[in-house]
Design a protein around this nucleic acid. Structure first.
Lengths: 169, 169
DNA sequence: CGCCTCAAGTTAACATATTAAGTTGAGGAA
DNA sequence: TTCCTCAACTTAATATGTTAACTTGAGGCG
């Protein structure tokens, strides 16, 4: 009998016998694992962001700016894990909402620094506070140690992978 | 002077002094960490998938099916970390490509099981082989132990979070 | 200087994901 | 049996992300 380690087993009987089940016991692929774990966290965070009128992506931008200011657009794409065209649209919206401001560099006119307006900074503070409460609960559920270890490992992965060249080789 | 722990520092001088920098030293948020780590991995995997004519999402579906078969659509959305409408579109494409087949349950006509066709299974085998090579390299770069620990932690996170209720509370 | 190349950003066309409003069948209670 | 409710899709609209082609300015070199 084939292994079937991790199904919901809800409708298993009803669908059973239609085809052979394969035998790979558990999903041990890093990309999917990272994605699923992220989704498990975001399910709890998203409603809070929504309640404050922000999307996930907008929030990533605001949060990145809260860490370092001013930041040029290219650097922002890295920090917010966004592609340039997506970032541009988001910046347009954030600017219209009066949360950010663009500042052209005096010495290099190709660079545009992005900064939070006072209102933007206040907004980040409010949302951060709202998220913090949930964050504490989630950390308790996951386990403080687990979270710390995980963050360290994630950083390690990013760092080590950044040393090798990207793409097809 | 404000902290500025983690910028590329490339254009720092040129943009400096336009606004106050805030003082949060390092991005320690789980969602972004997971996202960035995933991206760091996917940058190396995506070209291989592309070369075989698959998208990331299609591959997640195929891989999930390779683990457990047959699987109903709702369960598939969980395993492939996809929303239903996205899954439906992908299944339509995969079916047209002759890689999967749908089987209606005899006992519960609401359920549609998804299975790989022989051609689909062969395809998965080929792409898996192609990915495996890169995967070995990446694991070496990241470190075997790190990867194993990380996978365990990710699983722990998912498991523990699945015990609490989702949404706004 | 005048040419070259490349980084930074922009835009438009296209692909994909998300939300929301249906549809259909199962299983249970009156 | 008939009605009720809910789970499992399905579809259409909308938003968002992705690719690719283009523009502009910096900095290097003959």
């Amino acid at each position: 009998m084939p292994l079937r380690t991790r199904t919901t087993r809800k409708h298993e009987d009803e669908l059973a016998g239609v085809a052979e089940a394969t035998t790979i016991p558990f999903e041990r692929a890093l990309p999917v694992g990272l994605l699923r774990a992220r989704e498990a966290v975001m399910v709890h965070m998203r409603p809070i962001l929504r309640a404050h009128g922000t999307t996930e992506q907008q929030w990533r931008v605001l949060r990145a700016l809260n860490d370092v200011q001013p930041m040029d657009k290219t650097t922002l794409t890295n920090h917010a894990a966004l592609l340039m065209p997506s970032l541009l649209r988001i910046l347009k919206d954030l600017k219209q909402a009066g949360l950010i401001r663009l500042v052209r560099s005096q010495t290099n006119r190709r660079l545009t620094g992005v900064i939070l307006t006072p209102r933007g900074a206040a907004y980040v503070a409010v949302v951060t506070a709202a998220l913090a409460q949930k964050s504490i609960i989630l950390k308790q559920v996951i386990g403080q140690d687990t979270v710390e270890q995980l963050l360290d490992l994630l950083r390690t992965v990013e760092l080590r992978l950044s040393t090798i060249k990207t793409g097809s080789d």
